[in-house]
Simulated scan of single mutants.
Amino acid sequence: MADVLAGVHAEAKVLSEALPYMQRYDRKTVVVKYGGHAMGDAELAKDFARDIVLLKQAGVNPVVVHGGGPQIGALLERLNIKSEFKGGLRVTDRQTVDVVEMVLAGSVNKEIVSAINDQGGKAVGICGKDANLMRAKRLERRVRDPHSNIEKVMDLGFVGEPALVEPHIIDVIIQSDLIPVVAPIGVGPDGETLNINADTFAAALAVALKSKRLLLLTDVDGVLDKKGQLIRSMTTAEAQHLIEDGTISGGMIPKIESCMDVIAEGVEAVVIINGKVPHAVLLELFTAHGAGTLIERRKPRRTRAAQ
């Protein structure tokens, strides 16, 4: 009996300690970019869905933006459609963008919607084309020819970047008991479908919604120092210094620069989280230690563990 009571008391203590964090996010919008290997793991997907439902029940307004690169690649392979890459980016022709839209706005989106609904939530799936949520323009990348030293524009086809966000449809959804699940598809100037990177889409949406947090679920724990230890929090100035001294390198540089841009445009903080950690979203928002690397404009008066 004593063991049972001890377990109950421990659970009550956890819930009690979560209260101030739940109050902090009450009626606030949190954009969550869901992607990486966590999407392919059934148990992690279930944990993620439960987290999102709990956020909504706790008074938070979660907005889920998802990726789907592996699923797109798998279907293109099954259809024997070969992809061309330029500068590390997939060239998206007319045939490929049809597959991208079918996978992102179709199968992947509805799988996430179903998972949230199975956990007692009321999710609704949309994409950036709905109600002109995400107007986009063709993405331009410039490369310099090593032989002629002439700069050229790469033609990436139907790859886009945000041009104008009209968040009315999201505002309507989150004011109800519904949870929006958004596929990163935009509508171009001529009504064409444009494929947008999910991180970029989520960042633009977070700014437009004036969200309190942008959570980027990835396949890494966060930003690591030179000893390989997780950096739990940093300011944008510290992040810039870590880029300059080489601590942040490679593919993490554009991700951090994007985080800094989002914060400069009004989002309170961005967090890079390992989506393979069970209940990572709840750990980040409702516990003192968080679950990844938090990036914000300036240090709070108290340390992260005591926020």
Rank of each mutant, 00 (worst) to 15 (best):
A2K: 12
D3M: 11
V4D: 09
V8N: 05
H9N: 11
K13T: 08
V14P: 00
T29N: 12
V32L: 15
K33Y: 02
Y34C: 11
G36C: 09
A42W: 02
F48E: 04
A49I: 02
R50L: 11
D51E: 15
I52D: 12
L54P: 09
L55A: 08
V60T: 13
P62D: 05
V63A: 07
V64L: 11
V64S: 07
V64F: 06
V65M: 11
V65E: 09
G67M: 09
G69K: 12
I72M: 14
I72S: 10
A74Y: 05
L75T: 07
L79E: 08
N80V: 01
F85I: 03
K86R: 15
G88H: 10
L89C: 02
R90D: 00
V91M: 06
V91A: 09
Q95C: 01
T96D: 00
V97S: 10
D98C: 04
E101D: 04
V103D: 03
L104F: 04
L104M: 08
A105H: 06
G106S: 05
S107G: 01
N109W: 07
K110W: 02
A115L: 12
A115H: 04
G120R: 07
G121L: 12
K122E: 06
L139D: 00
R141Q: 15
K152N: 07
V153Y: 03
L156E: 13
V159N: 12
G160H: 05
G160E: 03
E161D: 13
P162T: 06
A163I: 01
V165E: 01
E166N: 10
H168R: 15
I169H: 00
V172C: 14
I173L: 15
I174G: 03
Q175S: 15
D177W: 02
P180E: 07
V181M: 10
V181H: 10
V182F: 08
A183H: 04
V187F: 01
V187W: 01
L194I: 08
N197G: 07
T200F: 03
F201P: 08
L205V: 13
L205R: 12
V207L: 05
A208V: 05
A208S: 15
L209K: 02
S211L: 07
K212I: 01
R213C: 00
R213T: 05
D219Q: 09
V220M: 02
D221S: 14
G222T: 07
L224E: 12
L224I: 09
D225K: 04
D225R: 06
K227W: 00
G228D: 06
Q229D: 13
R232W: 05
S233Y: 12
T236S: 12
A239Y: 03
L242E: 13
D245S: 11
G246E: 03
I248Y: 02
K255E: 00
I256P: 14
S258G: 09
C259F: 10
C259I: 04
D261R: 15
E265H: 15
E265C: 06
V270F: 08
V270T: 11
N274R: 02
K276D: 00
K276F: 00
V277M: 15
H279G: 00
A280K: 08
V281G: 05
V281P: 05
L283S: 03
L285Y: 04
T287M: 03
A288S: 13
G292N: 04
T293C: 10
T293Q: 11
R298S: 12
R302G: 04
A306L: 13
A306M: 12
